[in-house]
């Protein structure tokens, strides 16, 4: 009895004084940091939606691009939407298969050898190369010889997407358990067959969502397109020859314009672009949640 009363009561309450105060101050600061980010994001999104929604209509999405002096209700951004879809499609067609194969080399063949380590390291470094450098690069090796075209823009965007696809695919391949590979080898399958029929299908959810995030990044890029596709005012269905245009290029030229009508069309194009990127991101998230079999 006497022992129980003598047992010290441990004080589990929050410490008082400066220690408690500093803890609370820092917590409040962390929340403040998040609020500081929400405010501009909210402003950008609300402004774009409000100003964009007021000009968007079916004819806005399909009409040709008028001169900058035209009032807001004249013309539209049809050629820019067509150009963005064409260019992004071809960029994806090039970057995604090549990127997946590159990641297969890193993860399935390279293992821990120095070459795979080097390629992996420089894929990371390449994701940090400014997008405008890709534009200058394609200008030097392609545009100077073959002229401006949507395809040149696709090449530049492809260079931008390649390391992103390699990195995200690599991450996903790492998650595939080795027992799956070993099981297939035990059945006598070759490495190529194991990779194509067992490893890739097992990781396909993550790979697709990584690729879509790369597309979402590329679709909003302007800088690589400035000197590779220029801008045009009518639809150019031929990706391989002749100048083209895209939503980001159009927004850039309209933002530089002093005319109210041009700026209004810029907001409309901006809303269209954000919706496209947002849809890609949401679909990628959905695929990750629904189809990934292995996660970190």
């Amino acid at each position: 009895m006497a022992v129980a009363t003598e047992t010290q009561q441990i004080d589990l309450r929050e410490p008082k004084g400066w220690r408690r105060t500093s803890n609370r101050i820092m917590t409040v600061l962390m929340v403040t940091a998040f609020v500081l980010v929400i405010i501009p994001l909210g402003f950008v999104l609300v402004t774009t939606v409000v100003k964009g929604a007021s000009v968007i209509s079916w004819s806005f999405l399909t009409s040709n691009i008028p001169p900058n002096v035209a009032p807001a209700d004249v013309g539209g951004i049809g050629p820019a939407i067509v150009g963005t879809v064409e260019i992004t499609f071809f960029a994806t067609l090039m970057a995604v298969p090549l990127g997946i194969l590159g990641a297969i080399y890193l993860n399935e063949y390279g293992g821990r050898n120095w070459l795979a380590a080097l390629i992996g390291f420089f894929s990371d470094v390449m994701t940090g190369v400014p997008s405008i450098i890709m534009g200058l690069f394609i200008f030097s090796i392609w545009v100077l010889h073959f002229g401006f075209s949507g395809f040149a823009g696709a090449l530049a965007l492809g260079c931008l997407m390649l390391p992103i696809v390699i990195r995200s695919t690599d991450e996903m391949l790492k998650l595939v358990p080795n027992s799956l590979r070993e099981g297939s080898y035990a059945l006598g399958a070759t490495k190529a067959r194991v990779t194509m029929t067992v490893v890739l299908p097992a990781a396909i959810g993550g790979i697709v969502s990584g690729a879509m995030l790369a597309v979402a990044r590329a679709v909003g890029e302007t800088a690589p397109l400035l000197f590779t596709i220029l801008t045009v005012t009518t639809v150019n269905k031929n990706v391989f020859s002749g100048a083209n245009t895209s939503l980001p290029s159009q927004i850039f030229s309209n933002a530089n314009s002093p005319f109210v009508g041009a700026q209004a069309r810029g907001w409309g194009a901006a809303l269209t672009l954000i919706v496209m990127a947002f849809v890609l991101m949401v679909v990628a998230r959905f695929i990750t949640a629904r189809f990934s079999r292995f996660s970190r």
Binding site: P248, L273, M281
Partner: peptide
């Protein structure tokens, strides 16, 4: 929300920034 911030294209930040 943070990812959404990354989805806003550079050119849209520019358009909002200047206007």
């Amino acid at each position: 929300v943070i990812d959404l911030l990354a989805v806003v294209p550079s050119v849209v930040w520019g358009l909002w920034g200047i206007i």
